[in-house]
């Protein structure tokens, strides 16, 4: 097992270095930065849904919380290191509390989906209604529909005069994505991850084996929220503004579509789905002939109908069937043996 983890890490690092170096030759770093952030957000839901079996309709809530927390903390603190940490911790704690309420309350999957959706909508409505000087946290005005602009963006830790932006922000986000991906890989290979997959498969059985399903699902949910919070904080730095749109229903739906299209139950699928569809959205945003939302819906419908498992699982199946594991039948072996014998004789 350790050997395969080592190979996995090395392969991830090699592919990442090549992609991080090569992609800016084709696409601008400004766009690539947000794609890396989307990929991280997709991975956060891919982890809790694909491996933890928790279908969260409100991943955007944690994304938005991360972004707003960063903006508010950065205005009040100034230096960006602590705000980045707080922006991960706040969504994590929020999700832990929400998760504990849902999982200890033994809510079914449908209710869980409804509650996460409603929480996102409540946050969206609330943040939208915070215009005016009455809604401030420290020195930060929440700004209602207009959001919070003009907060200090990322700086080199301890150097408030050295900002990380442009290409540097791209490399930082890409490296953060690779680290999160490796962290998720490690988590899924650990006992905790393997047990989480067992819970996804059969909660009752895992409970009868002796596992407290409730606490494990809560922890998994909180980890997913922490990753989404990190993505949100990076997004705030990329856009240099946070708005209530981060909590919107369309944002939540998009994350689910990324995971379905990329492929659930894989680490790379949601990441690919997020970056791929994010790039498509970026390209479509440059024209006005086709409605972006309609096309997203159409893509989802086509995938559900023709490729329900998503791109990555389908590609893995094709690979295994054709190239990855060639079936060496006794007949094939015998033919090779005969050919070798003929060659030696001849």
């Amino acid at each position: 097992m350790q050997g395969s983890v080592g190979r996995d890490v090395i392969a991830t690092l090699i592919v990442s270095v090549i992609l991080i170096w090569a992609l800016p030759l084709m696409v601008g770093t400004y766009t690539l930065t947000v794609l890396a952030i989307y990929a991280m957000l997709g991975l956060s839901l891919g982890l809790i849904w694909g491996f933890g079996g928790i279908l969260c309709f409100g991943q955007a809530a944690f994304f938005g919380l991360g972004a707003y927390t960063y903006a508010i903390a950065a205005i009040n603190i100034g230096e960006s290191t602590l705000p980045m940490i707080i922006a991960v911790i706040v969504p994590c704690i929020f999700a832990a509390l929400l998760g504990a309420m849902m999982f200890y309350g033994r809510l079914g999957d449908v209710y869980l989906g409804v509650i996460t959706l409603v929480v996102t909508l409540i946050l969206f409505k609330f943040v939208n209604s915070t215009a005016g000087p009455a809604y401030t946290i420290g020195n930060a005005r929440l700004g209602g529909y207009n959001g919070i602009p003009g907060f200090p963006t990322l700086n080199v830790p301890g150097r408030t005069d050295l900002y990380i932006w442009g290409d540097a922000l791209y490399y930082l986000c890409a490296v953060a994505l690779v680290l999160v991906y490796l962290g998720v890989t490690w988590l899924l290979r650990s006992s905790f991850g393997r047990i989480a997959v067992g819970i996804r498969e059969n909660e009752t059985r895992m409970s009868l084996i002796g596992y407290d399903v409730r606490i494990r699902k809560t922890v998994m949910f909180a980890i997913g929220a922490a990753i989404a919070g990190l993505a949100g904080a990076l997004y705030a730095n990329w856009g240099a503004i946070v708005t209530p749109g981060l909590f919107s229903l369309s944002q939540s739906a998009e994350i689910i579509i990324w995971c379905i299209v990329g492929g659930l139950g894989t680490r790379f699928g949601p990441l690919l789905g997020a970056a791929g569809l994010g790039y498509l959205k970026f390209l479509l945003g440059q024209q006005s002939m086709i409605n972006n939302t309609m096309l997203m819906g159409l893509i989802l419908v086509l995938f559900v109908l023709f490729l329900p498992r998503g791109v990555v699982p389908a590609a893995i199946s094709v690979w295994r069937a054709s190239v990855g594991r060639p079936r060496r039948t006794g007949r094939a072996r015998a033919m090779r043996r005969n050919r070798r014998r003929d060659r030696d004789d001849g």
């Binding site: 393997r194 997959v197 084996i209 002796g210």
Partner: peptide
């Protein structure tokens, strides 16, 4: 505990299923 209807993790291998039970203790 073994329940009336086989209650197992269908998408996991036999080895992984039994490991999950062993890992609990």
């Amino acid at each position: 505990i073994k329940t009336q209807v086989p209650n197992v993790m269908d998408a996991l291998s036999v080895q992984e299923n039994i490991w999950l039970a062993a890992r609990r203790f």
